[in-house]
């Protein structure tokens, strides 16, 4: 915390410049509301419940897709990591599909799933899947062979070894993948809502842009960013409780 003074001063100074640029008439544009008006719009949106509803509906779709994608990622990742035939069969297909930009798949998914909830849930599930599956494979592969040898020496059944040794040892990796995916999931939800349908914060942003309600648009970006930040903090907290023994505690998600 110490030594951050200069940085906080910089942030405050930039916001003050923003505010002053409008109040003093240096910039006069309907696209450039003063910072305080943006905060006021965010506050009103939250207080009258409009933004809460909009972001809540986005979060609902996001979480559905996120849970499906994470479950598939962990399941398939474990299968690949634990069985050589499964790895040889599935891994090339995953490596083939993974670099395809998720946004490119959306138009095709519209043909299959329409414009509403199923489309967005599938998009999020697909985007969530890849970081989780990759990290699950890496984490399971990184389990210290000595642990496995010890299990074998003591004649512990394979299922027990997997459940009590392999999965806990891989958990920090799996959770790191899920943390990356969480940020990706929110981004993909917003993108899918911008491109299709009439729900959620993505659609709200676009409609505020068309309506030239700049303050409301920035206000919803502020609230959305706050949501992303809180989701990440919540996940980090949960992660810390779940893998309290793990020493690698690093903050590095990005979207």
């Amino acid at each position: 915390m110490k030594g951050r003074t200069s940085g906080v001063v910089l942030v405050v100074a930039l916001l003050a410049c923003w505010e002053a640029s409008v109040r003093l008439g240096i910039v006069t544009s309907t696209n450039w509301p003063p910072f305080t008006a943006v905060l006021a719009a965010a506050w009103h949106g939250l207080a009258d419940g409009e933004l809460v509803t909009v972001i809540g509906s986005s979060l609902y779709r996001m979480l559905c897709g996120y849970l499906i994608g994470s479950a598939l990622g962990i399941g398939i990742g474990l299968a690949i990591a634990l069985s050589r035939p499964v790895r040889l069969t599935l891994e090339p297909a995953i490596e083939l599909v993974r670099p395809v930009p998720i946004t490119a798949i959306i138009p095709v998914l519209i043909f299959i799933f329409g414009l509403d909830d199923p489309l967005k849930i599938v998009c999020v599930a697909v985007a969530t899947f890849f970081p989780v599956v990759i990290n699950t494979i890496a984490g399971t592969g990184a389990v210290d062979p000595i642990y496995l040898d010890v299990c074998r020496t003591f004649g512990i059944p394979r299922a027990t070894t997997i459940g009590r040794v392999v999965i806990p040892a891989a958990l920090p990796f799996i959770l790191a993948g899920m943390r990356t995916s969480l940020a990706v999931a929110l981004v993909v939800t917003v993108i899918a809502e911008m491109l299709a349908g009439q729900q959620g914060v993505g659609y709200y942003l676009i409609s505020m842009q068309y309506a030239l309600r700049a303050a409301d648009m920035y206000g919803s970006i502020v609230v959305l960013t706050l949501t992303a930040y809180l989701l990440n903090r919540l996940f980090v907290w949960w992660e810390g409780r779940l893998i309290f023994w793990s020493r690698t505690r690093e903050l590095e998600p990005s979207a």
């Binding site: 696209n31 940020a183 929110l186 981004v187 917003v190 993108i191 911008m194 914060v201 993505g202 942003l205 676009i206 505020m208 842009q209 700049a214 648009m217 920035y218 970006i221 959305l224 960013t225 992303a228 930040y229 990440n232 979207a255």
Partner: peptide
């Protein structure tokens, strides 16, 4: 933490 595509309309 700003989801960057959310900045597109702006």
């Amino acid at each position: 933490p700003i989801p960057k595509p959310a900045l597109l309309p702006a």
